[in-house]
Simulated scan of single mutants.
Amino acid sequence: MTATVVPARSPLRPYLSTTGRILRQLRNDHRTVGMILVVPALLMTLLFFIYQDAPHPPHGPTLFDRVGISMLGILPFIVMFLITAIAMQRERTSGTLERLLTTPLSKVDLLGGYGTAFSLAAAAQATVACLVSFGLLDLDAAGNPAWVVLIAVVDAICGVALGLLASAFARTEFQAVQFMPVVVAPQIFLCGLLVPRDQLPGWLQPISDLMPLSYAVDALQQVSQNPEVTGEMLGDLGVVAAFAIVALALGAATLRRRTA
């Protein structure tokens, strides 16, 4: 009598199943796909025309070059934070999340699947925005544009992670949106876009140091000003990645098994 051999279940199967499900949902949601892929590129185009006739030093970067390279990190961060927080909260209010948490699916597999799916969308978003900016709008940087793409992708992934974390503290989609001015707006004000971070009042500088968007903008400015890769740029990029990992870990720790 021959024994039947049952193939071992892959430990990655729950994670991969969750990732595939979210990607299929995104693919079928054409408005969300448009928001992810098109909106940042359109906003960069608008920024180009805003600064098109602005005066600039004859031998220095244009205003579009100075502001635009920072916006390539800021826009994906904003959009992915908003979309991820709303999408995750929709899973909660529909009861999908609660049903999933009654299965053997672990919190790590669940958030890992969500994070991976939205991170792939974030990578596509950042790549399209950078291709439009460098290829069509003539954005100029001293360093390799590939580093700009990488920084923008990592920053967008950080937006995904913070969106997942913020959704854990919201009970409705509207509440998820309300986290945007709390979590995102201060980072825009203090990241160095409006005023260089070393020129901020002394009591604001430590606050700026606690915000991932500050390091993303610093890394992008390093690429803008230096033809070679700098240790400061790599360090800033590592800090943004660390923020994303910590946010995902906190999101898993705060994930509720009941939506009410």
Rank of each mutant, 00 (worst) to 15 (best):
A152P: 09
V160W: 03
V183P: 13
A123G: 15
P14Y: 00
L213R: 02
A146Q: 07
P145W: 10
L237Q: 01
T4S: 08
T96W: 03
V149G: 07
L72Y: 00
I22N: 02
L26T: 11
M71A: 06
V6E: 04
L248Q: 04
V33T: 08
A216G: 10
V33W: 06
S167C: 11
R90W: 04
D140P: 05
V132I: 15
A244F: 03
L213V: 06
L63N: 08
R13M: 14
F77Q: 11
Y114E: 13
M211N: 02
Q199L: 14
F189P: 05
F49P: 12
L137H: 08
L237N: 00
D140N: 10
A168M: 14
R31N: 10
P11L: 11
F179I: 04
A8K: 01
V148C: 07
P58V: 04
A85I: 03
S167P: 06
I78G: 11
L97E: 15
A141M: 11
R90S: 15
Q221G: 06
R171S: 11
L136R: 01
V182L: 15
E98I: 03
R197G: 13
A219M: 04
D198Y: 05
L150E: 09
L75Q: 02
T84S: 08
L193A: 04
A249G: 11
R197A: 14
L213N: 07
T45R: 01
T2P: 15
T93C: 12
F189K: 00
R31C: 10
L37D: 06
E173M: 05
R27G: 14
V108T: 15
V229G: 13
A129H: 03
T102A: 15
S106K: 00
A8G: 03
E173N: 05
A156S: 08
M44P: 14
P57N: 05
L136G: 11
G60P: 12
R171G: 13
D155S: 14
A141L: 07
Y215C: 09
V177N: 13
I74G: 05
L234E: 13
A117V: 04
G113V: 01
D155P: 05
L47G: 05
A146Y: 05
M35W: 15
L204N: 09
M233W: 11
Q175Y: 09
L165Q: 05
A252W: 00
V128D: 04
G60M: 01
Q178M: 14
L26S: 11
G163E: 12
L42T: 02
L237P: 01
I188D: 10
V67Y: 09
M35G: 13
V5Y: 00
G20R: 10
A87C: 07
N144W: 12
T45W: 02
S10K: 02
R258W: 11
M44A: 07
L136V: 04
G68P: 08
V79K: 01
I207C: 10
Q225N: 12
R66Q: 14
D65T: 02
A247P: 13
Q125M: 05
A170M: 13
L110I: 02
L220Y: 08
I69Y: 07
L210C: 15
P61I: 08
G235L: 15
G73C: 05
P104T: 03
F169G: 09
A8W: 07
R256G: 13
T18M: 15
F49R: 01
Q178L: 14
L204V: 13
C191L: 12
